[in-house]
Design a protein around this nucleic acid. Structure first.
Length: 454
RNA sequence: GUGGGUGUAGCUCAGCUGGUAGAGCGCUGCGUUGUGGUCGCAGAUGUCGCGGGUUCAAGUCCCGUCACUCACCCCA
């Protein structure tokens, strides 16, 4: 390729360097292990869906990438296929298509890319990876699954080597019941207005509630008070009760939200919080009950890095409906800004934990044999490319972040292994030596994460 | 889609009222001939995003274009 047309990055299509990719892989591996620990099956769906299934007349429609063959006839404008813009729509289709072959309740996780033709910004991309967990049942989905899906994602997030996450949750039943108890005519409209509380000042919200939703001053004030309730435990119940509004739906919402908070109570840590946040509403789309949003502490300006909730009628084939509940976590959205700011990276650019030094060409077989013995025990190992001076070979390892250099025995001495970070070099047995567990594979290292306890 | 900003070495950037490019970091080599990192010395690297215009002369001024970027919108 000529240097005169050096390729430039494509905005919105992030690509990572090897060390960064290792950090992303460490996060994906952790999520996968967490989801599977809870018994969720992995699913991969095709990247395209029929356009009539993707496009629903909403805002998202104009962001759909359409598939078209380069040499397609002028007559045929496009293939009628578009790239999926999330993982929920393809999953819904998959459930419907395979309903006869799946066991319900069906619990799956899905870690895949999605595409949106948006104007890129920090944390917003045209191509991005997300991790979704959902549970779908037939006809009825008991509420305890809302708690389960929250707990699965909470546990997965709590162990992530990223800045502290907070899972904020609310119940649309709770707020709708509250608004109905107030005697409001159009609860959906109120939800849309109070949802903006993060961006718009409280008195402006109140003015809108009065002028646009026709509430009187007292009721508007009540709505504001509700939206400002935010607690790390079930104490929100008392605070809502103290507002003095009564409604059957409100009672149900309070009970359910309290169950979610209780269910996640044991998962809180320095790196993870759960909160009831009664202003969370998540637009007006298909959510019907519990709703979630995930925020990354110190990076609230990115907006939510994940979200989800219960959808009672996303999937339906007429006779049967398949209610579900799920949460998605934006891997690209949360990680790429951290990687770009340099506060997160991989511990090394290669998988290798060990570089076996090469004394001279004649002893290559010896070095290869050492490497094979280490690999046989699961230790990622590479052999030095050329018998350069040992200083060069050590530097080769150092540049790549390989923590250990192995010096095969010479006539006079035994095998030795050197930790090039400390400089310590000790005798070692190629048949039993083990690196520390945290050095075995590349890790994601973040300036925000506290040192792990020894 | 609407509006602003910025394009100079691998990276971060400097370059005044126009006079044909610089720093730091990184990189390569040597000091140190089989043990890196520190230090010292030496060295390499650019069609100044692209196209056009003004001018004796353009990185610098003007127009266009492309790319990147920020905000709005929306969201993972």
């Amino acid at each position: 390729m000529s240097q005169h047309n050096k390729p430039t990055p494509l905005s919105g299509f992030p690509e990572l360097l090897p060390a960064q990719r290792n950090a992303e892989l460490a996060v994906i591996d952790h999520l996968r292990r967490s989801f599977e620990l809870h018994g969720f099956s992995s699913l991969e769906t095709r990247i395209v869906e029929p356009l009539d299934r993707l496009a629903k007349g909403g805002e998202i429609d104009k962001e759909i990438y359409v598939l078209r063959r380069l040499q397609a006839d002028d007559e045929a404008s496009d293939s009628g296929l578009g790239l999926h813009f999330d993982l929920t729509v393809p999953f819904a289709r998959y459930v419907q298509e395979n309903a006869g072959k799946l066991e319900f309740p069906f619990r799956r996780y899905q870690i895949q890319k999605a595409w949106r033709g948006e104007r890129p910004q920090e944390g917003r991309f045209r191509e991005f990876t997300q991790a979704d967990v959902d549970i779908v049942a037939k006809d009825e989905l008991p509420f305890h699954y809302d708690v389960e899906v929250a707990r699965v994602m909470a546990e997965a997030l709590a162990g992530l080597p990223l800045p502290a996450m907070s899972l904020q949750t609310n119940s649309r039943r709770l707020i709708e019941g509250f608004y109905r108890g107030l005697g409001a005519a159009d609860p959906q409209r109120l939800i849309a207005i109070t949802d903006k509380l993060d961006k718009v000042p409280a008195d402006a919200i109140k003015r809108q509630l009065v002028e646009e939703a026709g509430l009187d001053d007292t009721r508007a004030q009540q709505c504001l008070r509700l939206a400002q309730i935010r607690t790390p435990d079930t104490s929100f119940v008392e605070r809502v009760r103290s507002l003095g509004v009564e409604h059957e739906l409100l009672d149900q919402g309070l009970t359910e939200l309290a169950a979610v908070l209780d269910g996640c109570a044991g998962i809180r840590s320095d790196g993870f919080r759960v909160e009831a946040n009664l202003r969370i509403a998540r637009g007006l789309d298909y959510y019907t009950g519990t709703v979630f949003e995930i925020y990354m502490e110190g990076y609230e300006s990115l907006g939510s890095v994940g979200g989800g909730g219960r959808y009672d009628s996303l999937v339906s084939d007429g006779a049967t409906t398949y209610p579900g509940v799920g949460i998605s976590f934006g891997i690209s959205r949360s990680m790429v800004p951290l990687l770009q700011r340099g506060v997160l990276t991989g511990s090394r650019s290669v998988p290798s934990a060990v570089l076996v030094a090469l004394a001279d060409e004649a002893s290559r077989a010896t070095s290869d044999a050492v490497a094979q013995q280490l690999r046989a025990r699961g230790i990622p190992t590479e052999v030095a490319a050329a018998p350069q001076k040992y200083g060069r070979q050590i530097r080769y390892a150092e540049r790549r972040g390989i923590p250990f250099v192995w010096f095969p025995a010479t006539d006079a001495a035994t095998d030795q292994v050197k930790d090039i970070r400390s400089g310590d070099q000790t005798d070692a047995d190629r048949a039993s030596w083990q690196p520390p567990a945290e050095d075995l594979h590349p890790r994601a290292v973040s300036m925000h994460v506290k040192e792990e306890q020894p």
